[in-house]
Design a protein around this nucleic acid. Structure first.
Length: 535
RNA sequence: GCGGGUGUAGCUUAAUGGUAAAGCUUCUGCUUCCCAAGCAGAUGACGAGGGUUCGAUUCCCUUCACCCGCUCCA
């Protein structure tokens, strides 16, 4: 399947549009049209229903270590700025960057170090990005190379001052970039804000800077204590949230796959440290099965466990559920959902201050003054087991899914072209969206075979009865074959046709989208018949 | 962010330094009546801004968006 065909269909039938299209569009933002909004909401509703509202906390689910509870949350997009400092996003998401026009490399402004050196009447600032221990060696090697000197002529190099950060240099004309052969190839430092900045308050200034959340997860962590104190939930339990998140992706691309405004479906599952590995495996397998049950059953879906060297040392496991999107190269997969074992990293950070992920055991990251670089809340986020009286900081399993990516994957999987005969028996190409009935935007369409002899009246009654329960459409225009095809492109699983026989025996035909089979049911049983098939 | 390509109607395409053609779609009417039927009619486009020119959809510049590759993907 070519991606262009799907993109074209999405626009033609109203699944998705480019945001602000009449003004030329805006990079990294996409809108959902009339069909798309139903599809995406069905996916989110299915997730919420299956994970939270329909969860049975009284019985042990297959594969689960024990019973558990599930609850929900809906927190704000803008939160206290300290949240993002402590979570680590502030440091990871906003840096000054410089680009090298020669090597096409990109460097963090504060991480490049260098030293002034003069030879042959020219003075340049040689930079390096290697570790501090090898710094002098690398600088000398690069300086010699630049001035075209042999190692034995090293005394011709006249060093000026100590090795300092590039941040102390204001003019880059004589700066030799780490992988460049000539000077002056670096761009001016540019701010690289991966988080969306905003100002809180009508009179707000820079000091009132806040951020649009880059993930919904932190809102769950900071509300952990509130939920525990207000709901009688006992560990193990999960808190779920669906909502928009924002990231200034460097390269938004591939339709909605990498958008700057996107929607997440996240669970933070809190459990005892001793059982966290088992819970991790449970959620990994449970989430994989969820996609399969909704139609991503083919080989294009895969579960990929991260290799041990990919993991943070405080994590005992991370897995990605991935889909082989048609816009990716052969054999490559794109992430739909990540299931991560996060240990107690997040709760401890919000309690004690931002932890340094490179320490083992984890320690609070210190600033230059020896105090915590980013202070935590100071609130006690430990959990006391009411039965054993054990007090501990729970470990967290995080199944974090992308609602837009899931929607896109379901669309890609559903798009099919097949050959079906027309009214003369000639084979015609048919475009059909084979969406699972549960997520299909429209569940049923109702047609009078002809627009006379009382058929429209009966059809309208059927339509009204259906529409009271779920999305349905009524269509009496043109040949019935055309109406079937139109519904095929929208992914409507069932079409109901009122024909001449309906008038005498009070039965109608139901036509199946995928098989094109038809069968007759009693007029009075139509709603029940369709309802049983789409839920 | 870099390099290359593309941008004409809702979709797919055409032509042109003198404001654009078609198929499909959509809408109206007639006809037909179980898988994109027929006839008649209607709606509808040169991504945006600037320049050159008597005149630009066409040539030039800028910009925006999309596609491909590189980079990035916390």
């Amino acid at each position: 399947m070519e991606m262009e065909k799907l993109v074209s269909l999405c626009k033609r039938r109203g699944f998705m549009f480019q945001s602000s299209e009449i003004y030329g569009g805006i990079n990294g933002f996409w809108d959902y049209g009339p069909l798309g909004v139903e599809l995406k909401r069905n996916i989110k509703d299915a997730w919420w229903h299956d994970m939270i509202t329909a969860h049975d906390e009284l019985d042990v689910r297959p594969g689960a270590p024990s019973t558990y509870e599930m609850t929900g949350l809906d927190c704000t997009i803008i939160m206290h700025p300290q949240v993002w400092k402590v979570s680590g996003h502030q440091d990871l998401f906003s840096d000054m960057m410089v680009d090298c026009k020669e090597s096409k490399g990109r460097y963090r402004y504060d991480q490049l170090r260098g030293r002034w050196v003069e030879a042959k009447g020219q003075k340049v600032f040689v930079t390096t990005k290697v570790e501090a221990e090898e710094e002098d060696e690398d600088l000398q090697r690069r300086a010699l190379k630049f001035f075209n000197l042999r190692a034995k002529n090293v005394e011709e190099l006249s060093w000026d001052g100590d090795t300092v950060s590039l941040e102390t240099i204001s003019e880059f004309e004589n700066v030799l970039a780490p992988e460049a052969k000539s000077v002056g190839s670096l761009t001016e430092p540019r701010e690289f804000n991966l988080m969306f900045k905003t100002i809180v308050g009508a009179m707000g200034t820079e000091a009132d800077t806040a951020f649009l959340r880059p993930e919904t997860a932190q809102g769950i962590f900071v509300n952990f204590k509130n939920v525990v104190d207000s709901t009688r939930v006992k560990i193990p339990f999960g808190i779920a949230q669906v909502g928009k998140s924002f990231r200034n992706e460097i390269t938004p691309r591939n339709f909605t796959f990498r958008s700057r405004e996107f929607e997440q479906m996240e669970i933070e599952f809190f459990c005892h440290p001793d059982s966290s590995r088992k819970w991790y495996e449970y959620w990994r397998d449970r989430r994989m099965q969820w996609y399969k049950d909704l139609g991503l059953a083919g080989e294009r879906l895969q579960l990929r466990d991260h290799a041990p060297d990919e993991l943070s040392h405080y994590s005992t496991g991370t897995a990605d559920i991935e889909y082989a999107f048609p816009f990716l190269p052969e054999g490559e997969y794109g992430e739909l959902e990540g299931i991560a074992h996060r240990g107690d990293f997040d709760l401890r950070s919000h309690m004690e201050g931002k932890l340094d992920p490179n320490t083992c055991p984890l320690e609070v990251e210190k600033g230059e003054d020896g105090k915590p670089k980013y202070r935590g809340s100071g609130k006690d986020l430990t959990y006391r087991d009411p039965e054993t009286n054990e007090k501990y900081l729970p470990h967290v399993i995080e199944p974090s899914a992308g609602a837009d990516r899931a929607t896109l994957a379901f669309l890609c999987e559903a798009y099919q072209e097949d050959e079906q005969p027309d009214d003369k028996g000639k084979m015609q190409t048919r475009v059909v969206m084979k969406l699972h009935p549960r997520i299909a935007p429209v569940k049923a369409a109702v047609f009078p075979l002809v627009k006379k002899e009382g058929m429209p009246e009966i059809a309208k009654d059927v339509y009204r009865a259906l529409k009271a329960k779920f999305p349905a459409v009524y269509d009496e225009k043109g040949a019935v074959g055309r109406r079937y095809r139109r519904q095929d492109e929208a992914g409507t699983p069932y079409c109901i046709t009122i024909d001449g026989d309906t008038l005498t025996d009070k039965t109608v035909t139901i036509r199946d989208r995928d098989s094109l089979e038809q069968w007759r049911v009693k007029l009075d049983d139509v709603v029940e018949e369709i309802a049983g098939r789409v839920s």
